[in-house]
Design a binder for these strands. Structure first.
Ligand code: MN
Ligand code: MN
Ligand code: ZN
Ligand code: ZN
Lengths: 138, 138
DNA sequence: TTGTAATTTTGTAACGATTTCAAAATTGAA
DNA sequence: TTCAATTTTGAAATCGTTACAAAATTACAA
């Protein structure tokens, strides 16, 4: 069995064709796509693919813990198959969402010392390196 | 002129009755409310208040930089008149959103060193202290 | 004060993302 | 092959938000 199918099976998800393709898309592209993006792209290969299936599948992936939701913008829900704790940077110029690492235990948090932390989301918005240079040389 | 009216005027916003009440609500309650919450509460005092006015006013507050959007959950947009950089903790049990401070320059970020940072949002989800004890003693 | 223009508020309709739902298609076992 | 269980699909419903034009309020000059 291919690794992606095994990964789904191990996560308690039956590896249907659509599920394999959606998870592969997330893992290969690593582009933090919206439902719209996933559906539009896969439609080329799977002309019958329903948007509902994309919604259902992603909801299942999130429930089973193999995908996380990225809420960096309030008008678009993005998805990420990288479920490690990492940060996301959105460039306000080119709209690309970059990954970054941060020292999770160096956070120096006060006021909520006795709370139980389950998920940490660090979002930064600004201008990416590429756009910075492009904008400067214009 | 009262301080809240002066604050609006200084921010380039004409202090209409509705705007004063909405900003006061945000500043007094500090509860990171949704549009729904603000509208429902203020309706007791201002029976003619339109939800559109709440939307318009908050959009204006954000544009003028006196309110920030809190995107801790993907199905609800919350608002905060505290525009300082601070973190938000959402309790998954009681749904309350708490403020917390964090050392902004202690973040130890890698991979995006040369990017320009404009906004930083740190969201943590988990169980708050109160709920932790309540759940334990049940 | 009155008239008039500018601004603000309001309510309805439109919109877009997401969910619900039941039928159709597919899969898996007997 | 048959039949039940699962999955996918597409249409309709829902929900938060925005667009828009009319109504109300405010500002100001005559
Ligand atoms: Mn990521
Ligand atoms: Mn806050
Ligand atoms: Zn960029
Ligand atoms: Zn709690």
């Amino acid at each position: 069995m291919k690794t992606i199918e095994k990964y789904l099976t191990d996560s308690g998800i039956k590896p249907s064709y659509q599920r394999i393709r959606i998870l592969s898309y997330l893992m290969d592209k690593k582009n933090h796509p919206t439902v719209e993006m996933i559906h539009k792209e896969l439609l080329h290969d799977i002309p019958t693919l329903s948007k509902t299936t994309v919604y259902n599948t992603l909801k299942q992936f999130v429930e089973k813990g193999i995908t996380q939701i990225i809420n960096i913008e309030d008008n678009e829900t993005r998805y990420d198959a990288d479920i490690s704790t990492h940060g996301h940077f959105k460039c306000l110029n080119c709209n690309k969402v970059y990954d970054f690492r941060f020292g999770n235990n160096s956070l120096e948090i006060s006021d909520i010392e006795d709370f139980d932390f389950l998920q940490t989301h660090l979002y930064i918005k600004g201008i990416c390196k590429k756009c910075k240079y492009l904008l400067n040389t214009k």
